[in-house]
């Protein structure tokens, strides 16, 4: 067993006993880690209540070679996730980030860029920045980093350029836009305005300056949310638990 140091975001906590927790952590250095934190529910001790949902902390943990859970021995809080008064959209956005990270990443598959994106998104949500935009940015960034971003300019079937004007067919099963020829006979095809696809491309861009300048009108945001709800459900193979709560993102 070797002791490792890592920066982590707490994705899930489950009470294990009177004083212990089983935690799922997204670490920058090692990816997702499931671990037992003995005594983490005590006020005093090496955890100081740091292992709360969505908290950013520095942890020390022991890696187990067998199938059993790793052991967190120490946690120091760097930033607690605490939204401002009345900001339920930010809170549910944060929960959604945790759900997607937990469901879409594998244990010990590190993605530092994804960790940084999640960290930035959680900080922005806690600060009260526009939750709907930051959540969309996170979803598209996550899909890009994991190689699951839908094709937004070329037909997902034949690879031809799809004209970005008017309404464009988007095939959930095919993983992106479809040209008029390939659309015929396809199932689970949505009709999307070209402006929505342009917004998606900009939000998915790795360059921060591109999406930060972006102004998304309410109608585009609504269409984009609907499209992402369907696409994320398709990628996950189930509807995300937080999906019904995402309507709060617009009520900020």
């Amino acid at each position: 067993m070797s002791a490792e140091n890592a920066t982590a975001i707490v994705l899930r906590t489950v009470e294990f006993s009177e004083t212990s927790l089983v935690v799922t952590l997204m670490t920058r250095e090692f990816g997702k880690v499931g671990a037992l934190a003995k005594g983490a529910r005590r006020l005093k001790g090496p955890f100081e209540s740091a292992l709360d949902l969505l908290a950013l902390c520095r942890i020390v943990f022991l890696r187990k070679s067998s199938e059993s859970l790793d052991l967190v021995t120490e946690a120091k809080l760097l930033r607690r996730f605490r939204v401002k008064k009345g900001n339920l959209g930010g809170l549910y956005g944060g929960y959604y980030v945790a759900e997607l990270l937990d469901a879409m990443t594998d244990d010990y598959d590190a993605h530092p860029e994804l960790f940084d994106l999640a960290d930035q998104t959680l900080a922005a949500l806690a600060d009260g920045e526009t939750a709907s935009k930051h959540v969309l940015r996170f979803e598209l960034g996550l899909l890009r980093i994991l190689g699951l971003l839908p094709s937004l300019e070329q037909c997902a079937d034949c690879g031809d350029e799809v004209p970005a004007a008017g309404s464009v067919a988007f095939g959930h099963l095919d993983g992106g836009v479809l040209c008029a020829k390939c659309r015929v006979g396809k199932q689970q095809v949505a009709s999307v305005h070209a402006g929505v696809l342009r917004t998606m491309t900009q939000l998915a861009d790795s360059d921060d300056r591109v999406w930060r300048r972006l102004q998304i009108d309410k109608r585009t945001r609504g269409q984009l949310r609907g499209l992402m709800n369907q696409y994320m459900a398709h990628v996950l193979g189930r509807k995300p638990r937080l999906q019904p709560y995402l309507t709060w993102l617009e009520r900020q």
Partner: peptide, 14 residues
């Protein structure tokens, strides 16, 4: 005073 406890209080206060 946890994220979920605070979230519950926030929801009720809304």
């Amino acid at each position: 005073p946890t994220v979920e406890g605070d979230g519950t209080a926030l929801y009720i206060s809304s």
